[in-house]
Protein backbone atom coordinates (compact mmCIF):
# COMPACT_ATOMS: atom_id res chain seq x y z
CA UNK A 1 0.00 0.00 0.00
CA UNK A 2 1.23 3.47 -0.81
CA UNK A 3 2.22 5.57 2.19
CA UNK A 4 -0.26 8.21 3.38
CA UNK A 5 2.34 10.95 3.12
CA UNK A 6 5.39 10.85 0.90
CA UNK A 7 7.75 13.83 1.08
CA UNK A 8 10.50 13.97 -1.51
CA UNK A 9 13.49 16.31 -1.48
CA UNK A 10 11.68 19.19 0.19
CA UNK A 11 13.85 22.31 0.39
CA UNK A 12 12.53 25.54 1.90
CA UNK A 13 14.38 28.85 2.31
CA UNK A 14 13.48 32.25 3.72
CA UNK A 15 14.76 35.38 2.00
CA UNK A 16 15.61 37.82 4.78
CA UNK A 17 17.53 41.11 4.80
CA UNK A 18 20.40 39.29 6.52
CA UNK A 19 20.57 36.68 3.79
CA UNK A 20 18.89 33.46 2.71
CA UNK A 21 17.97 31.22 5.64
CA UNK A 22 18.19 27.57 4.66
CA UNK A 23 15.42 26.24 6.86
CA UNK A 24 14.68 22.84 5.31
CA UNK A 25 17.33 21.05 3.24
CA UNK A 26 16.41 18.14 1.03
CA UNK A 27 14.04 16.38 3.44
CA UNK A 28 12.48 13.11 2.28
CA UNK A 29 10.42 10.65 4.28
CA UNK A 30 7.19 8.68 4.26
CA UNK A 31 4.54 7.98 6.85
CA UNK A 32 2.21 5.00 6.73
CA UNK A 33 -1.44 5.13 7.57
CA UNK A 34 -2.03 4.72 11.32
CA UNK A 35 1.61 5.41 12.17
CA UNK A 36 2.72 7.91 14.81
CA UNK A 37 5.84 9.77 13.80
CA UNK A 38 7.65 11.72 16.50
CA UNK A 39 9.86 14.46 15.09
CA UNK A 40 12.51 15.72 17.51
CA UNK A 41 14.65 18.78 17.01
CA UNK A 42 15.55 22.14 18.44
CA UNK A 43 14.64 25.57 17.15
CA UNK A 44 16.00 25.98 13.65
CA UNK A 45 16.01 22.25 12.96
CA UNK A 46 13.33 22.65 10.30
CA UNK A 47 10.84 20.46 12.13
CA UNK A 48 8.02 23.02 12.19
CA UNK A 49 8.78 24.80 8.93
CA UNK A 50 8.73 21.64 6.86
CA UNK A 51 5.33 20.67 8.28
CA UNK A 52 3.85 24.11 7.73
CA UNK A 53 5.24 24.49 4.22
CA UNK A 54 3.72 21.27 2.95
CA UNK A 55 0.20 22.60 3.45
CA UNK A 56 0.90 26.15 2.35
CA UNK A 57 1.03 27.67 5.82
CA UNK A 58 4.29 29.61 5.54
CA UNK A 59 4.24 33.22 4.38
CA UNK A 60 5.55 33.47 0.82
CA UNK A 61 7.55 35.73 0.66
CA UNK A 62 9.77 35.63 2.70
CA UNK A 63 9.40 31.82 2.55
CA UNK A 64 10.16 30.03 -0.70
CA UNK A 65 9.79 26.35 -1.53
CA UNK A 66 12.84 25.72 -3.68
CA UNK A 67 12.11 22.15 -4.61
CA UNK A 68 10.30 19.02 -3.61
CA UNK A 69 7.11 17.04 -3.86
CA UNK A 70 4.70 16.20 -1.05
CA UNK A 71 2.33 13.39 -1.99
CA UNK A 72 -0.68 13.03 0.25
CA UNK A 73 -3.05 10.28 -0.82
CA UNK A 74 -1.43 10.39 -4.25
CA UNK A 75 -1.75 14.17 -4.85
CA UNK A 76 1.21 16.56 -4.78
CA UNK A 77 0.20 19.16 -2.19
CA UNK A 78 2.77 21.64 -3.46
CA UNK A 79 0.92 21.81 -6.81
CA UNK A 80 -2.50 22.51 -5.29
CA UNK A 81 -4.19 25.91 -5.54
CA UNK A 82 -4.97 27.97 -2.43
CA UNK A 83 -8.60 26.97 -2.88
CA UNK A 84 -7.76 23.27 -2.96
CA UNK A 85 -5.49 23.60 0.08
CA UNK A 86 -8.27 25.43 1.87
CA UNK A 87 -10.54 22.43 1.31
CA UNK A 88 -7.85 20.07 2.52
CA UNK A 89 -6.69 21.78 5.70
CA UNK A 90 -8.79 20.96 8.70
CA UNK A 91 -10.65 18.28 6.78
CA UNK A 92 -7.94 15.90 5.61
CA UNK A 93 -5.03 17.29 7.60
CA UNK A 94 -5.68 18.64 11.09
CA UNK A 95 -3.31 20.87 13.02
CA UNK A 96 -2.67 21.49 16.70
CA UNK A 97 -0.30 24.34 17.46
CA UNK A 98 1.83 25.06 20.45
CA UNK A 99 0.23 28.00 22.11
CA UNK A 100 -3.48 27.73 22.88
CA UNK A 101 -3.41 31.31 24.19
CA UNK A 102 -2.62 32.79 20.81
CA UNK A 103 -4.07 30.22 18.43
CA UNK A 104 -7.63 30.54 19.67
CA UNK A 105 -9.64 33.63 18.80
CA UNK A 106 -10.42 35.39 22.09
CA UNK A 107 -13.65 37.04 20.88
CA UNK A 108 -15.35 33.94 19.50
CA UNK A 109 -17.02 31.28 21.62
CA UNK A 110 -15.44 27.87 21.71
CA UNK A 111 -18.46 26.50 19.85
CA UNK A 112 -17.95 28.91 16.93
CA UNK A 113 -14.30 27.96 16.64
CA UNK A 114 -14.82 24.21 16.69
CA UNK A 115 -17.87 24.39 14.44
CA UNK A 116 -16.20 26.53 11.79
CA UNK A 117 -14.33 23.74 9.96
CA UNK A 118 -17.31 21.41 10.40
CA UNK A 119 -19.75 23.82 8.80
CA UNK A 120 -17.33 24.74 6.04
CA UNK A 121 -16.32 21.24 5.06
CA UNK A 122 -19.51 19.30 5.69
CA UNK A 123 -22.23 21.95 5.28
CA UNK A 124 -23.68 21.03 8.66
CA UNK A 125 -26.57 23.08 9.99
CA UNK A 126 -26.03 25.06 13.15
CA UNK A 127 -27.75 22.50 15.36
CA UNK A 128 -26.01 19.54 13.70
CA UNK A 129 -22.68 21.27 14.20
CA UNK A 130 -23.52 21.94 17.84
CA UNK A 131 -24.17 18.25 18.49
CA UNK A 132 -20.83 17.38 16.94
CA UNK A 133 -19.06 20.08 18.99
CA UNK A 134 -20.48 18.67 22.23
CA UNK A 135 -19.44 15.19 21.15
CA UNK A 136 -15.91 16.39 20.39
CA UNK A 137 -15.51 18.22 23.69
CA UNK A 138 -16.63 15.10 25.52
CA UNK A 139 -14.16 13.06 23.48
CA UNK A 140 -11.26 15.30 24.53
CA UNK A 141 -12.35 15.10 28.15
CA UNK A 142 -13.92 18.48 28.88
CA UNK A 143 -16.52 18.04 31.63
CA UNK A 144 -19.99 19.63 31.25
CA UNK A 145 -19.34 20.07 27.54
CA UNK A 146 -22.87 21.21 26.72
CA UNK A 147 -22.73 24.04 29.22
CA UNK A 148 -19.24 25.09 28.24
CA UNK A 149 -19.59 25.44 24.46
CA UNK A 150 -20.90 28.99 24.80
CA UNK A 151 -17.86 30.12 26.78
CA UNK A 152 -14.88 32.08 25.53
CA UNK A 153 -11.26 30.86 25.53
CA UNK A 154 -10.31 32.95 28.59
CA UNK A 155 -12.84 30.99 30.65
CA UNK A 156 -10.82 27.81 30.08
CA UNK A 157 -7.56 26.82 31.77
CA UNK A 158 -4.41 26.23 29.71
CA UNK A 159 -4.91 22.48 29.61
CA UNK A 160 -8.58 22.80 28.72
CA UNK A 161 -7.71 25.28 25.95
CA UNK A 162 -5.23 22.82 24.52
CA UNK A 163 -8.01 20.21 24.56
CA UNK A 164 -10.16 22.64 22.60
CA UNK A 165 -7.31 22.98 20.09
CA UNK A 166 -7.15 19.22 19.77
CA UNK A 167 -10.92 19.08 19.33
CA UNK A 168 -10.59 21.55 16.43
CA UNK A 169 -7.70 19.52 15.01
CA UNK A 170 -9.68 16.28 14.95
CA UNK A 171 -13.13 17.77 14.32
CA UNK A 172 -13.36 16.58 10.71
CA UNK A 173 -11.77 13.18 11.40
CA UNK A 174 -8.62 14.08 9.49
CA UNK A 175 -6.50 11.35 7.98
CA UNK A 176 -3.41 13.08 9.34
CA UNK A 177 -3.02 15.10 12.51
CA UNK A 178 0.05 17.32 12.83
CA UNK A 179 0.78 18.53 16.37
CA UNK A 180 3.54 21.10 16.70
CA UNK A 181 4.87 21.33 20.28
CA UNK A 182 1.26 20.84 21.36
CA UNK A 183 2.08 20.19 25.03
CA UNK A 184 5.22 22.29 25.45
CA UNK A 185 3.46 25.22 27.13
CA UNK A 186 1.57 22.98 29.53
CA UNK A 187 2.36 21.74 33.02
CA UNK A 188 3.68 18.18 33.15
CA UNK A 189 0.54 16.86 34.84
CA UNK A 190 -1.64 18.36 32.09
CA UNK A 191 0.79 17.17 29.42
CA UNK A 192 0.42 13.63 30.74
CA UNK A 193 -3.36 13.87 30.38
CA UNK A 194 -3.13 15.24 26.83
CA UNK A 195 -0.72 12.49 25.78
CA UNK A 196 -3.07 9.90 27.24
CA UNK A 197 -5.88 11.49 25.29
CA UNK A 198 -3.94 11.30 22.02
CA UNK A 199 -3.11 7.63 22.59
CA UNK A 200 -6.77 7.03 23.32
CA UNK A 201 -7.93 8.87 20.20
CA UNK A 202 -5.55 6.86 18.07
CA UNK A 203 -7.12 3.70 19.38
CA UNK A 204 -10.65 5.02 18.79
CA UNK A 205 -10.32 6.72 15.41
CA UNK A 206 -6.97 5.48 14.11
CA UNK A 207 -5.60 8.87 13.09
CA UNK A 208 -2.11 9.06 11.63
CA UNK A 209 -0.09 11.48 13.75
CA UNK A 210 3.00 13.62 13.27
CA UNK A 211 4.02 14.80 16.74
CA UNK A 212 6.66 17.54 16.66
CA UNK A 213 8.48 18.17 19.94
CA UNK A 214 11.87 18.74 21.51
CA UNK A 215 11.14 16.34 24.37
CA UNK A 216 12.68 12.87 24.01
CA UNK A 217 10.44 11.59 26.82
CA UNK A 218 7.25 12.56 25.00
CA UNK A 219 8.39 10.85 21.80
CA UNK A 220 9.38 7.74 23.75
CA UNK A 221 5.83 7.28 24.99
CA UNK A 222 3.87 8.27 21.92
CA UNK A 223 5.69 7.47 18.71
CA UNK A 224 6.20 4.34 16.64
CA UNK A 225 8.91 6.01 14.61
CA UNK A 226 11.27 8.76 15.70
CA UNK A 227 12.88 11.23 13.32
CA UNK A 228 15.67 13.45 14.60
CA UNK A 229 16.22 16.72 12.73
CA UNK A 230 19.04 19.23 12.93
CA UNK A 231 20.02 22.20 10.77
CA UNK A 232 17.14 21.57 8.36
CA UNK A 233 18.03 17.93 7.76
CA UNK A 234 17.00 14.50 8.99
CA UNK A 235 19.93 13.15 11.00
CA UNK A 236 18.43 9.82 11.97
CA UNK A 237 15.16 7.97 11.82
CA UNK A 238 13.83 4.60 12.80
CA UNK A 239 11.63 2.59 15.19
CA UNK A 240 11.69 4.35 18.61
CA UNK A 241 13.01 1.39 20.55
CA UNK A 242 15.91 0.89 18.15
CA UNK A 243 16.93 4.55 17.95
CA UNK A 244 16.81 5.06 21.73
CA UNK A 245 18.82 1.92 22.33
CA UNK A 246 21.26 2.08 19.47
CA UNK A 247 21.55 5.63 18.08
CA UNK A 248 23.91 5.97 15.13
CA UNK A 249 23.97 9.75 14.70
CA UNK A 250 26.28 11.55 17.12
CA UNK A 251 23.57 14.18 17.55
CA UNK A 252 20.92 11.69 18.67
CA UNK A 253 23.48 10.01 20.90
CA UNK A 254 24.50 13.37 22.43
CA UNK A 255 20.90 14.42 23.04
CA UNK A 256 20.10 11.18 24.85
CA UNK A 257 23.32 11.25 26.80
CA UNK A 258 22.88 14.86 27.97
CA UNK A 259 19.63 14.05 29.82
CA UNK A 260 19.91 13.45 33.57
CA UNK A 261 18.12 10.04 33.35
CA UNK A 262 17.05 10.12 36.97
CA UNK A 263 20.59 11.03 38.01
CA UNK A 264 21.04 12.47 41.47
CA UNK A 265 23.01 15.45 42.61
CA UNK A 266 26.69 14.84 43.03
CA UNK A 267 26.73 11.93 40.61
CA UNK A 268 28.55 12.32 37.32
CA UNK A 269 28.62 15.56 35.42
CA UNK A 270 26.04 15.83 32.65
CA UNK A 271 27.36 15.09 29.20
CA UNK A 272 27.19 18.30 27.20
CA UNK A 273 27.15 18.72 23.45
CA UNK A 274 29.78 21.40 22.77
CA UNK A 275 29.21 24.51 20.68
CA UNK A 276 26.09 26.30 19.52
CA UNK A 277 23.28 25.65 17.04
CA UNK A 278 24.20 26.36 13.41
CA UNK A 279 23.70 29.64 11.65
CA UNK A 280 21.36 28.73 8.81
CA UNK A 281 22.25 31.81 6.78
CA UNK A 282 25.43 30.16 5.60
CA UNK A 283 25.11 27.90 2.60
CA UNK A 284 24.79 24.40 4.10
CA UNK A 285 27.90 22.37 3.37
CA UNK A 286 28.58 18.95 4.81
CA UNK A 287 26.96 17.42 7.86
CA UNK A 288 25.28 20.32 9.74
CA UNK A 289 26.25 18.81 13.11
CA UNK A 290 29.90 18.28 12.14
CA UNK A 291 31.25 21.50 13.75
CA UNK A 292 29.92 20.32 17.14
CA UNK A 293 30.69 16.66 16.67
CA UNK A 294 33.86 15.33 18.30
CA UNK A 295 33.67 12.23 16.06
CA UNK A 296 33.45 14.21 12.81
CA UNK A 297 35.89 13.46 10.04
CA UNK A 298 37.26 15.76 7.32
CA UNK A 299 34.62 14.38 5.01
CA UNK A 300 31.75 15.38 7.37
CA UNK A 301 32.74 19.04 6.99
CA UNK A 302 32.93 18.91 3.19
CA UNK A 303 30.26 16.52 2.02
CA UNK A 304 26.68 16.02 3.14
CA UNK A 305 26.03 12.39 4.11
CA UNK A 306 22.85 10.89 2.63
CA UNK A 307 20.21 9.38 4.92
CA UNK A 308 20.84 5.65 4.53
CA UNK A 309 19.74 2.37 6.02
CA UNK A 310 22.00 1.50 8.96
CA UNK A 311 23.91 -1.65 8.12
CA UNK A 312 23.10 -4.52 10.44
CA UNK A 313 20.19 -2.70 12.13
CA UNK A 314 16.44 -3.24 11.74
CA UNK A 315 14.82 -2.20 8.44
CA UNK A 316 13.86 1.47 8.46
CA UNK A 317 16.64 2.54 10.82
CA UNK A 318 18.40 5.22 8.82
CA UNK A 319 21.16 7.66 9.66
CA UNK A 320 22.97 10.42 7.77
CA UNK A 321 26.57 9.84 8.83
CA UNK A 322 30.01 9.32 7.35
CA UNK A 323 31.44 7.90 10.57
CA UNK A 324 30.56 4.68 12.38
CA UNK A 325 29.39 5.83 15.80
CA UNK A 326 29.72 2.36 17.36
CA UNK A 327 33.34 2.11 16.25
CA UNK A 328 34.10 5.63 17.45
CA UNK A 329 32.58 4.94 20.86
CA UNK A 330 34.58 1.74 21.16
CA UNK A 331 37.78 3.63 20.31
CA UNK A 332 36.91 6.28 22.87
CA UNK A 333 36.29 3.66 25.53
CA UNK A 334 39.59 1.96 24.76
CA UNK A 335 41.40 5.26 25.27
CA UNK A 336 39.92 5.84 28.74
Amino acid sequence: MAPLLDIRNLTVVFDTPAGTVHAVNDVSYTIEEGETLGIVGESGSGKSVHALSMVGLIARPPGRIVSGEVYFKGRDLLKLSQRELFDLRGKEIGFVFQDPMTSLNPVLTVERQIAEPLRRHFNLSKSQARERVVELLELVGIPNARERIGQYPHEFSGGMRQRVMIAIGISCNPKLLIADEATTALDVTVQAQILDLVRDLKKKIGTTVIWITHDMGVVAGLADTIQVMYGGRIMERGPVDTVFEDPRSAYTWGLLKSLPHGGKRGTTRLYQIPGNPPNLINEPIGDPFAPRNTFATERCLRETPPLQQVEGSVPGHKAAVWYDLREELKKQEAKV
Partner: peptide, 11 residues
Protein backbone atom coordinates in the same frame (compact mmCIF):
# COMPACT_ATOMS: atom_id res chain seq x y z
CA UNK B 1 3.86 12.79 35.05
CA UNK B 2 7.53 13.26 34.09
CA UNK B 3 8.07 11.70 30.67
CA UNK B 4 10.90 9.18 30.79
CA UNK B 5 13.20 9.15 27.74
CA UNK B 6 13.01 5.38 27.42
CA UNK B 7 10.30 3.90 25.16
CA UNK B 8 9.99 0.66 27.14
CA UNK B 9 9.27 2.45 30.41
CA UNK B 10 7.38 5.38 28.95
CA UNK B 11 4.81 3.33 27.02
Amino acid sequence: AIPVPDPRIER
